[in-house]
Amino acid sequence: MSALSPNIATRLAPHALTIAIAAFVVVFSVIEPAFLTPDNLVGIFRQVAMVGIMATCMTFVIMTGGIDLSVGPVLALSGVVSFFAMEAGYPLPLVLAAGLAAGVLVGLLNGAVIAFLGLPPIIVTLAMLSIVRGSALLLGGPDLHGIRDQPGFTFIGTGSIAGIPFSIYLFVAVSLLVVFLQKMTPIGICVAAIGENERAAFLSGHRTRITKMSLYAISAFGAALAGIIQSSQVHTASATYGEFGTELDVIASVVLGGTSLMGGNGSVARTVLGVMFLGIMNNGMNILNVSIDIQLIAKGAIIALALALAERG
């Protein structure tokens, strides 16, 4: 038995997150049957859609040993830019393009400074956090801008098709797209190579710098899309959205999915599991009326514990 148990542990380790999710679903449904109603399950997906989109898009960055702390302000910036594009009377496709382009531009800037000047990602994106927040505030001021009479834009965050909110379709589509990028295109291989050993990847002819720059653009794209969803959901755009802590939730989801902050290992599909895990924890604790203080403590303990176990596995 004692010879067998480490074997079982090794085999189960890759599925630990799935098992944990299943266990929590069972526990929550037993204590509070309302947890398992279709409405609530859809609600969980809707709640995680924004963080989920940002987390799947940031997975590549973290796989290369980088990090993106600037997603919160990028989220705000894209909402504010979209708002002004709408105010100017542009059609919906242009509005969305403007919002997303603003975000991608920030991402390209992040990526260029990190990839070509070789500066540490944590500080570059921290500086960018401050710069983008300042720019968004300069552009939109600290006020809320109401979005009225924009049925097309409002549909993104609040509309639903066949009873399922549109933002969930977006989350699924983005996840599938990024999984596709990882599994089916050279980008996936290049990301893994950079994460394992950047110098070796460079010497073996991978275009490491251009790739790294694009990865930060992908991450910022996710944040910009989340910003559009947020503005659409609450019918307002504001430069103060995506407040401090957003980026930490996103990073926690990615890391819970088993992507190492040191780079190398990682999988977009598992990031989705990490997102779902945090979403189910939040929703379950809310349904059980757990107070905010215990929720925060539990969240911290779970992240630490899960990763400590992963380290042993």
């Binding site: 990073i251 905010i292 969240k299 911290g300 303990a301 992240i303 630490a304 990763l307 400590a308």
Partner: peptide
Amino acid sequence: LIVKLRLQPFIATLSTLAAYRGLVYA
């Protein structure tokens, strides 16, 4: 947490960021 659980400092202090803030409310 960093030494005994071998967590990366970023993760260890990210989780205590949430936990200590929770304790403040408590």
